[in-house]
Design a protein around this nucleic acid. Sequence first.
DNA 1: GTTTCTTCATAGGT
DNA 2: CACCTATGAAGAAA
Length: 665
Amino acid sequence: MEGGFAGNTGPPNSFDKSEVLDVKPLRSLLPVFPAPGATNGPPFGTAPPNSPFPSGFSPFFPFSPPQGSPSTPVINQNPFDSTAVPIRSFRAEQPTSNGKNVHSSNKRKLAGLSSLKKKAKRSNVSELALAALSNFKPGINAVEKDDGDRELVETVLMRFDALRRKVSQIEDSKEQHSEVFKHANLKAGNIMLTKGVRTNGRKRIGVVPGVEIGDIFFFRMELILVGVHSQSMAGIDFMPMQGSDIEGERVAISIVSAGGYEDDAEDPDVLVYTGQGGNASADKEASDQKLVRGNLALERSLHRANEVRVIRGFKDVTHQTSKVYVYDGLFKVQESWIEKGKTGCNMFKYKLVRIPGQAGAFSTWKSIKKWRADPSSREGLILPDLTSGAESTPVPLVNEVDDEKGPAYFTYVSTVKYPKSFKLVQQPSVGCNCSDACKPGNSNCPCNQKNGGDFPYIANGILVCRKPMIYECGSSCPCFRNCKNRVSQTGFKVRFEVFKTRDKGWGLRSWDPIRAGTFLCEYAGEVIEKVEGQAGEDGANKGYVFHTNRVYESFKWDHETESAGEASSNAGEAFNIPSPLIISSKNSGNVARFMNHSCSPNVFWQPITYEQNNEAFLHVAFFAKKHIPPMTELTYDYGTPPESVADHGKKKCLCGSSKCRGYFY
DNA sequence: GTTTCTTCATAGGT
DNA sequence: CACCTATGAAGAAA
């Protein structure tokens, strides 16, 4: 995969580095850290117990609500309550004809200017929009900035991504090639750092509180924000060695291996990492690497035997152009040597060995890669595709825990079916006039207008924020099937797996790493009338029902600015459902029927409508609440019945979160 | 304190 | 997709 060269797990030429490079001799170092005999007892406070996979999540703490605001109503009957900042109504300036050349020739000069001057060059529009987005309460104190925990890490990551999605949405709505900010992730990261919304900002050796092995990231900025690796591009992060008697001694504390150099990562427990520098660039030829900066720090870490965090980066299978990073735990540098790289220049090599006893992360990814290539190699496989081809992506059925051969019989259907008699509560709406695909910035597009002017999705079908209702393009829209406003109706793209859980029956998880905001699937099944007079509210459908009229715990997912208004700021995350909907997946359904309940879930639902054959139908769509590592069980909050319908219908909850309500329905 | 330098980024193009 | 290039920001070093 990484094209590593075979057999390079040892030093082929152990010649003295000081002969090749003019460096201070390192052998004067005394191995004072750590204490002898203490090398094999790393603190595994973050390792999930009793599970080969990252085990889910600590309680999710939503963003702090505005001071004194009342608790959020869950059902909001006013669809236009949302007071989002109206940034999309602006139109970007046209670029100058030779804007590109001017820009590049000014590059050198601009580099030295203050950010203020650079900003002044941008259009007022972008500045206004960004200023509006920057106007939020940091909600993080000095202690939390220095040292985090699981809640803080999750909150910071979710707030970053909410902001990034919003910046990206603004970027998408601009005219093409207009002179606006690019790189939504950098802009969002910059705002977060400027406002001090970060955690674990104090550098440290070893475990980062709240960051667990197997956690995934989609931007280098995210690594900085939670203190895993505080270099925005460089692969080696280091810090001063405390108590060192050597002037300016620095040890490596984390490295990123992401394909930038010829690393050897065949063995999950051994990483042969290439030092930094020596690459050819626009103004420079390839050269020998020097024993400075990160390389020197790694050399010191070899002598000091300190723990080094390893983050591995891969091409994201679902978004070919971008990368996904996995925190793979603690390693130690075991040896180093110099060898000639492909350019013929000397490269430093560092052999890092994984400290034993840690939960698997990269090893899980390697297994998945094998299953992808040969699905029949999946351990415990019962059925290669339980959808029988109904979905474009197969869904294997596996059981690795007991002898059960599968769930009770049901018919697989990919979408929700309304009975003929169903009384439509929504008028069919007019389609758009967009010829090929609806454009995010087109304020004349009726589909955009129905969505309140904001295009609901950014690239790759990522949801920007929750809405009272999302209106996708329907069959009367002339735009093509691949219009970006048809995310939920084109079927799921995630490589799911239905598996037998240890204590909750069958469950759902994914082979793919999932970004926050990713559309997962809809809740398929038959729309039914309320069943009266039977045990529990669902009667014979019990356990396989979705109700839109249950009480769902409110949570904050969107980026929230102070200017959005105190009183109604949460209203945008309540729903506007014209009339309650009950879907049963008892007899027929899709993968959603296997999703279990959790009181701190990683998935949420969102109502969506689009029209088919001149009738508008409501769909229940599921989206990822946060980044979800592969093989992590997918769960959503089942909610509670509006009245205490039947206490005997409740079940003991096994979600295990500290926010667990004890029961679910 | 300020500026320059280095860096296993990204996104969008061909 | 394998490569190209424009844009770009953090932190260390100067």
